[in-house]
Amino acid sequence: MTERDLICIMCPNGCHLHVDKGLNVTGNKCPRGVAYAKAEVTHPTRVVTSTVRINSKELRVCPVKTKDPIPKEKIFDIMAAIDQVHLKTPVHIGDVIIHDVCGTGIDVVATREILS
């Protein structure tokens, strides 16, 4: 584990956090900063949102998201997987677009109703 400097995103304070090699956090004003910094250094995750092509009359693309946060290092692999998909209408919110994307155990789902 290397040392890292982070900006805390838990509240508007935006504390400048420092995490040392032993996972000790300094610069935080509250305990939420410690939890955030430890998670961000050991297993950072993100929700990926993007669009996929669709044969709709009204829209050229359908918005999608990973149903839960995925490991940050998988973001571009997931984008490549999303890029391969062509959808057909109708699509409903929550429809699974890709099951278990890139072996993360997490589905990519539609986030818009596109009926025709």
Binding site: L6, I7, C8, I9, P12, G14, R46, I75
Partner: peptide, 11 residues
């Protein structure tokens, strides 16, 4: 927002 500075720029 800080969240966007971190997750949209730093990432």
């Amino acid at each position: 927002l800080n969240r966007n500075i971190v997750q949209c720029l730093e990432d």
